[in-house]
Nucleic acid binder design. Structure first.
Length: 265
DNA sequence: AAGATCAGCAACCGCCTGACC
DNA sequence: TGGTCAGGCGGTTGCTGATCT
């Protein structure tokens, strides 16, 4: 492996770097009108001098209408910590459980936390309290996350029916969806990546009508991909509940995700 | 006021995987 | 059945703005 993607090769003249508003507009309007049939063909069809991968990334991480953006709430933060404990650096799977957030966003968030944590550890290990204080001086630097790396493999076993349910639990989605809620081809990132899938865009409702997001079926999430606090809290509680009990197995099937694997649905 | 430092974010890179031929 | 292609993912880098000295 390790081949350079044809679409990214230097043979084609592709732009790199930040996207201009015009490029965003071209990509957005193209997807709104025609959907995503094949990423590699989109640059040409949309009149963009970008490679397909770049277009996909831009759409997934920035232009999708269901993206929430903005700061992470405490609930989201807790959920990320819990999920990271369980899933490790599987950002796409974590993102699949955080409606309105992209894997890149979560990854960046976590890396920022980790950086802070490492600095704090370093500072505290040098027994210098003044260094520690210095690390806190900016932007209210704090870190509540656990820094321990998760097991390489973690897949929750189905919870027996007679096990207690976490307080505030909300009916979980029947199956784990894609990290991109309106992407019918997603299925946890392992689905076939063919050119046949059609991703509607333009507004969240349209996307919803094509491929209802698993999370949105609970009605706890807004059209824009946001979830109310109760929903997130339930997820956090549920995660803590499961992870606290260490429902581990050796199943390598990543598609047997957290939601799909437990017995609450 | 200016430089240094840091956090946050966007994007790229390399690799893996599955579909197709 | 093996090679090629395209999508997807995680790691990493670089830029920018905010904050501090």
């Amino acid at each position: 492996m390790g081949r350079v993607h044809p679409c990214c090769s230097e043979e084609k003249k592709v732009r790199k770097g930040l996207w201009s508003p015009e490029e965003d507009e071209r990509l957005t309007s193209h997807i709104a009108r025609f959907g995503v049939s094949c990423w590699s063909s989109i640059p040409e069809l949309a009149g963009l001098q970008r490679c397909g991968k770049s277009c996909r990334l831009r759409w997934m991480n920035y232009l999708r209408p269901d993206l929430k953006r903005g700061r992470f709430s405490q609930q989201e933060e807790d959920l990320i910590i819990a999920l990271h404990k369980a899933l490790g650096n599987s950002w796409s799977q974590i993102a699949a459980r955080l409606p309105g957030r992209s894997d890149n966003e979560i990854k960046n968030f976590w890396n920022a936390r980790l950086r802070k944590k490492l600095r704090q550890k370093e500072a505290s290990s040098t027994a210098g309290s003044k260094e520690h204080a210095a690390s806190h001086r900016r932007r209210g630097g704090e870190d509540g996350g656990s820094g321990t790396h998760p097991p390489a493999v973690f897949n929750p076993l189905p919870v027996p029916e007679d096990r207690p349910r976490p307080a505030g639990y909300v009916a979980a989605p029947a199956a784990a969806g894609s990290s991109y809620d309106n992407d019918p081809s997603g299925a946890g990132g392992t689905a076939a990546a063919t050119c046949g899938s059609v991703l509607m865009a333009g507004n969240a409702a349209a996307a919803e009508s094509v491929a209802p997001s698993p999370t949105s079926t609970t009605s706890a999430c807004t059209e824009a991909g946001g979830c109310d606090d109760g929903f997130l809290k339930a997820m956090v509680d549920d995660a803590s509940f499961l992870f606290g009990d260490f429902y581990l197995d050796g199943n390598q099937d990543g598609s047997n995700s957290f939601w799909g694997g437990h017995a609450f649905s």
